[in-house]
Design a protein around this nucleic acid. Structure first.
Lengths: 195, 195
DNA sequence: TAGATTGTTAATCGATTAACAATC
DNA sequence: TAGATTGTTAATCGATTAACAATC
């Protein structure tokens, strides 16, 4: 979605100390046209001033609000293998307000071991954990073979979004509002666009 | 792109032993309409038979061909940390014809260590390696701080596609034909769609 | 031949772009 | 007031859907 592109651009502009910006300048910072920028922004409210442009700080804040970027999210990682461990210890999640609340694995020899500040929990506790801790996001870091089953389980337990790192595309239940673009899909699109 | 959805559906149908399929049935297996399915397919050729439908095996083959799914691709992994290691040892790449030809890290204490069948190479060898081995795809598995620099380096060296696993969005040079949807972008879109 | 279903043309819809009145 | 730039309306473009002749 284009809003997230605007948001990043505005963040950069604010970091650079810019005070105001025009739709024209925003358009140049990406691919679109100034008309498109104005239309996109106007849909969510009147952020600009005619004859002047947009206040960088104000627009940046507004975009973050619209995108829900200031919200905290609760996450579980499913799979405590190399990938699940790497993702748990990653800074990318916390940095964006995605708090990793638990890590689960079906392999009992991993259960009880530590991954950073967390202790690996057994899979049978996942469902209840999601419900009591109101986890919104599930990260699938299990094998291709197990991935779909885990996605179904996460969906049934009440998770609203799935980030899939398993090497196969998933079908998700309708209660899932968002799922990441699968790595497998990325690879297929790559294949197409590279000819 | 929708072709990849068709491709997966057709693969499943073939696995299930289906012999023929109609645009109507394909449409039901996803979200679109039968007219859209016919239009999409007709754009690439005449794969169906009027009054009959599409031959599952033939269409599946054709789609794979169009998507370039049967081609072999050469890949380097940049970053031999937890994530780079996990990705290298992953089966998701090889399984789809993405051959991992090398893994690189700037940390000299990692250089020379083994990751599966590969030995970690020093970063200064990356450029030449890409050129002599005609590497098409670079996987970015370095820190957020280093990611953009690596992407630039990969682009200059001649890589045509980038799969980014660093926790920040990248801007890529125009010679890059494809780049994966960044994890950071996935997280922002998630945020928007979850409200 | 009658029934089915494609490939394609025409109609519809939505999204992008152009243009401009509003207004700082 | 003159110049700039928004928000919005009208025009254009492209993509989706509907419809149907072609044909198995």
């Amino acid at each position: 979605m284009r809003l997230s592109v605007y948001s990043r651009l505005l963040q950069r502009l604010e970091d650079e100390g810019a005070v105001k910006v025009s739709s024209q300048e925003i358009a140049e910072g990406m691919d679109g046209s100034s008309a498109q920028v104005r239309k996109d922004l106007a849909y969510f409210g009147e952020f600009g001033t005619r004859g002047v442009g947009y206040d960088v700080r104000l627009l940046n804040r507004s975009l973050k609000k619209i995108l829900g970027l200031e919200k905290n999210r609760s996450v579980v990682i499913v799979g405590a293998g190399r990938l699940g461990t790497a993702l748990t210890l990653y800074n990318g999640f916390e940095r964006r307000g995605f708090q990793i609340k638990g890590i689960f694995d079906q392999d009992m020899s991993k259960v009880g071991t530590r991954v950073g500040a967390l202790t690996v929990s057994p899979m049978y506790k996942l469902n209840e954990f999601i419900k009591t801790d109101q986890i919104q996001i599930g990260v699938v870091a299990v094998s291709a073979a197990a991935a779909q089953e885990i996605a179904d389980l996460l969906g049934r337990a009440g998770v609203r979004a799935i980030l899939n790192f398993a090497p196969r595309p998933l079908t998700v239940p309708p209660e899932i509002k968002y799922r990441s673009v699968d790595l497998a899909v990325n690879m297929e699109m790559l294949s197409f666009y590279m000819g």
